[in-house]
Design a protein around this nucleic acid. Structure first.
Length: 932
DNA sequence: GTGGTCTAGTGCACTTTGTGCGGG
DNA sequence: GCCCGCACTTTGTGCACTAGACCA
């Protein structure tokens, strides 16, 4: 679509600004003329002229092709005053326009007016032509092919209207064509993974928190006190079965209600106590209470939770349109449907919230209802509601998926039909509130609860519309029933939905609620165990959504032990009355219970049913269909056929073999057996073929005719290389040995990974081969990397011995060289110091040039510096000078004339910190140097 | 709603064996 | 003249994977 560059006022790009400025310039030019003559008349005439001009420009555009159709440009208001604009926008835009007009007025005087007669009426065809040309010149700048953001289109139209121009789009932006698909970058993936992991850890911690709260003796005692007497004895049977739990579950389900909201500021423990008191709470609290009750009844019980973590994959395209940063929209753990904050997530469709959603998302028709609801809410509830509303606003800013749009439409219809019912329910709840005085729950809270109940159908899996349905199985209990099966069984008990032993239904229920069973974790004894396998039969669907199993197993390992100990401990306590021998037996059985469960889960993993769609086989860990084999894979042996999917035979994944070229096998220390037919022959690309034709392969690779032969491991045998004979190392065509691994070394040879071995081997006249250990890319090409040499084993010691000697010699030589260099540098330093001092004496202290010359002469050979101090002492000159100095009372400057500096040892000072030594001559000259 | 197919974008693995110049 | 070390410059292609669009 060709659009007017509307980005001017949005400061989107400089180019856009320029282009729009050009248009503003056009307008201002006409404004200049207005001022030049009659304001009113010329203004109107000018506007008319601009309109004409635009029409002609548009005409010329449209004549150039369908893509340049700008018919959407037309003059809207003859007065140029915008209609229906906001005050802020008006202010902003007026300022901008005036500023630009002033600026352009100055420009137009110089730029346009000199060439154009002021009489607009007489504006000749030439001028118009010039202007049109100008427009054409601007065409490339001022107009561009651009996308239109739907969310901003409305405001943009207003802005353009302000300028007296209406921007009309002849077609709705085609989202499917405009949307550029942006894939997640590696960095974003990494970030998503980190968020996922952190979210997992938080949810694990949350689960442990809940598990600990379930052990509270006060809560357990309170629950027992509520339990009818006949139910107390239900579980007091030696072989507990799932059936025996049913009455208990029914009682619990009827006595505890689930509400959506929760006071997130309370600790979970106090929230649990409140739930116990009011017999209403979140599904998490209700499930936790059920676990507490079962534990109070001495049943081995776990608290099980689906960890609904942030996605492992960055959902960029889903959540954020192009140009909208994740930070702006909010992302990850804080915006995901995490269980850390229970309230908003579990009641997405409560009437109040739904109405609030409607307020923001859908029109004002529902605003009245929302207002009513809001007015009845308590301040705290309103705050919560505001939070929810904020969340809704955030959600509304995101691009909506097709399903979400449909959901909104359905929601709107449902609300319109049930609005009356909601109001009635609210009134009923108000009435009930007035009547009930004993309850501690605030009337406002109760209203909300009641209102929510009417739409969420409180218990059972709802079939409500929406992407997140109410009733998703998120929390339940697992009770160990020793009477189930032969070895006992962990029985799924969901008091929220009043389901016992319904583990096979969890997956379907979760799927119906758009909830993936990525992680199902059972908590007990402050530990945790991943029991996802028990509830998830379609592992292939969640495998890619789970974190790296090594990391996950490592995280769970200590928790798993705690859980295992805890569940056995519970059993142990339960049978405390047993005698010692029985105790031992129980301990033994619990030890195997954990391993039995592991076996059960592993069995489930290995007996996963065959998927019914072909895509599932692509990365399935157990099964494969032939179409998903890549070019380096083959089925060997080709069977057994486990089943069929859309006519494709399904094979075990274990039949998939990786194929490699001969050279690749060589690198792994294997060679293809003689007379083996390639398992697969691949065609090479043109470029590779060309290169392959030019060169010969080292090992007789069969790459010719643009094909490459691949072999499977079953076609290989251990590498057999020609051995070293008579001290000669067998080499390849390039006179080297490729040392990919130790297996690639010819028998009887050894790889010496030391530098500077080549001269040693040459000196000893020992046969060797450079060892190529790999390739590296430099200068845009791959270059071989050599490391050491390959020699026959019998020469190893001799070479190493000589190498050691050679290295010692080399190091000594190196040391000597460095010392000599140090001396040389010292000499240079001191010589420069002397020169400096000489110049100082000569020109700064006012010494005679003659003395300077003498000084220089006496020092030219640097005899003083070359001389050692001790040696100097022994010389007759030194002795003479010393005596002269002692006898003379002359100032040092006089003495300095034609004298060589003498540094007496006694006059030397040493700075220990800086290791600097200062030598002083009696004449006052001193030299400071650093000791090496 | 689900699955199959096609398309396009992204990331990654594979490929693979120099040359010229200056200083010693 | 020979040998050694260093600098130069930083691929290109194809495939696997993934996700979206579209259709049945």
């Amino acid at each position: 679509m060709r659009t007017r560059n509307k980005a001017k006022l949005q400061n989107q790009s400089t180019a856009n600004e320029d282009s729009v400025k050009n248009y503003g310039e056009m307008k201002s030019r006409s404004g200049c003329k207005d001022r030049a003559s009659d304001n009113e008349t010329l203004a109107n005439i000018s506007r008319g002229a601009v309109g004409k001009l635009l029409k002609r420009v548009n005409k010329s555009r449209s004549s150039r092709g369908p893509k340049t159709d700008d018919s959407y440009l037309c003059k809207q208001d003859s007065t140029g005053k915008p209609e229906n604009r906001s005050r802020e926008t008006e202010k902003h835009l007026t300022g901008t326009t005036v500023a630009r007009a002033t600026l352009d007025a100055e420009c137009c005087t110089r730029d346009v007016l000199p060439n154009v007669p002021l009489e607009v009426e007489n504006e000749g065809a030439d001028v118009q032509y010039q202007r049109i040309e100008r427009e054409d010149e601007l065409d490339g700048i001022d107009w561009e092919d651009g996308s239109v953001h739907t969310l901003k289109s409305e405001s943009n139209i207003n802005e353009d209207t302000i300028n007296g121009v209406t921007v009309e789009f002849d077609a709705l932006p085609d989202s499917s064509k405009q949307k550029t698909v942006r894939r997640a970058t590696a960095e974003e993936k990494e970030l998503a993974e980190v968020v996922h992991k952190v979210n997992l850890l938080c949810l694990l911690a949350r689960g442990r928190l809940v598990d600990t709260a379930c052990n509270d003796p006060l809560i357990q005692a309170s629950l027992l006190s509520l339990l009818p007497a006949h139910l107390l004895k239900l579980t007091d049977v030696p072989e507990l079965t799932a059936k025996a739990l049913t009455p208990l579950v029914s009682w619990f389900h009827s006595h505890f209600r689930v509400r959506g909201a929760s006071d997130t500021e309370k600790s979970f423990h106090s929230a649990l106590a409140s739930t116990l008191e009011s017999q209403e709470g979140t599904s998490e609290e209700v499930a936790a209470l059920s676990v507490a009750l079962f534990r109070a009844l001495n049943l081995t019980t776990r608290f099980v939770s689906i960890l609904d973590v942030a996605s492992l994959k960055p959902e960029i395209e889903k959540l954020y349109p192009s140009g909208q940063s994740p930070s702006k929209a909010g992302s990850g753990i804080f915006n995901s449907s995490t269980l850390m904050v229970a309230a908003p997530k579990y009641s997405p469709l409560s009437p109040a919230k739904s109405l609030a959603d409607g307020k923001h998302n859908n029109g004002k028709s529902r605003a009245t209802i929302t207002d009513k609801s809001d007015k009845r809410m308590s301040p705290s509830t309103s705050d919560a509601q505001r939070d929810a509303n904020d969340e809704c606003i955030m959600k509304s800013e995101r691009p909506k998926r097709k399903g979400d749009l449909e959901f909104e439409m359905q929601l709107e219809m449902a609300l319109s039909s049930t609005a009356v019912e909601i109001v009635r329910n609210t009134m009923v709840s108000e009435l009930a509130d007035v009547q009930s005085t004993s309850s501690n729950v605030s009337p406002f809270k109760k209203k909300k609860i009641k209102a929510e109940e009417c739409s969420t159908s409180s218990h059972g899996i709802s079939t409500a519309v929406g992407s997140r349905k109410v009733g998703a199985p998120l929390y339940w209990a697992e009770v160990y029933c020793s009477g189930e099966n032969l070895t006992g069984k962990w029985v799924h008990v969901d008091v929220v939905n009043a389901i016992t032993d319904g583990e096979q239904n969890v997956e379907a229920a979760a799927a119906a609620c758009k909830l993936h069973l990525r992680y199902v974790v059972a908590f007990a004894g402050n530990g945790a165990k991943d029991v996802t396998r028990r509830y998830c039969t379609k592992w292939y669907k969640i495998a890619s959504e789970r974190v790296n199993s090594i990391w996950w197993d490592a995280v769970l390992a200590p928790l798993k032990e705690l859980e295992s100990v805890a569940t056995s401990d519970v059993v142990h306590l339960r049978r405390e009355t047993s005698d010692e021998s029985k105790k031992r037996e129980v301990a033994q059985s619990t030890a195997t219970r954990s391993s039995l469960e592991d076996m059960e889960l592993e069995t489930r993993a290995l007996t996963e049913p065959l998927p019914t769609n072909q895509q599932a086989y692509r990365n399935h860990r157990l099964y494969i269909i032939e179409r998903w084999l890549n070019k380096y894979q083959i089925l060997y042996p080709k069977g057994p056929v486990l089943g069929f999917c859309s006519g494709h035979p399904v094979y075990p994944r274990s039949c998939v073999q990786t194929l490699k070229r001969k050279e690749k096998w060589f690198r792994e220390g294997l060679q293809v057996k003689a007379n083996e037919i390639p398992a697969k022959v691949l065609k090479h690309s043109g470029k590779q073929n060309k290169e392959q034709d030019v060169k010969d392969d080292d090992y007789g690779e069969e790459d010719c005719g643009g094909t490459v032969a691949l072999y499977g491991q079953w076609q290989t045998e251990p590498l057999f290389l020609p051995p070293a004979v008579n001290g000669i190392v067998p080499k390849n065509g390039r006179g080297q040995v490729d040392v990919w691994s130790e297996k690639c070394l010819p028998p009887g040879t050894v790889h010496l990974r030391l530098p500077r071995l080549v001269p040693v081997a040459k000196r000893l006249e020992i046969d060797f081969a450079p060892a190529m250990v790999g390739f590296e890319f430099r200068n845009g090409r791959s270059l071989p990397v050599y490391e050491g040499i390959v020699v026959c084993t019998e020469f190893k010691d001799a070479i190493l011995e000589t190498y050691a000697e050679e290295e010692e010699r080399r190091q000594a030589k190196e040391r000597k060289r460095s010392e000599a260099e140090a001396l040389s540098r010292w000499y240079q330093l001191l010589a420069s110091l002397i020169t400096r001092q000489r110049l100082h004496n000569c020109y700064v202290d006012g010494a005679s040039s003659q003395s300077a010359v003498n000084f220089a002469t006496s020092n030219d050979k640097s005899s003083l510096l070359a001389r050692d101090a001790e040696d100097t002492k022994k010389t007759p000159e030194y002795q003479q000078e010393k005596s002269e100095i002692a006898q003379s009372d002359s100032p040092p400057t006089v003495l300095a004339e034609d004298h060589a500096h003498v540094f007496v040892v006694e006059d030397q000072t040493v700075d220990e910190e800086s290791s600097t030594r200062t030598k002083r001559c009696r004449c006052g000259f001193s030299v400071q140097y650093e000791e090496l």
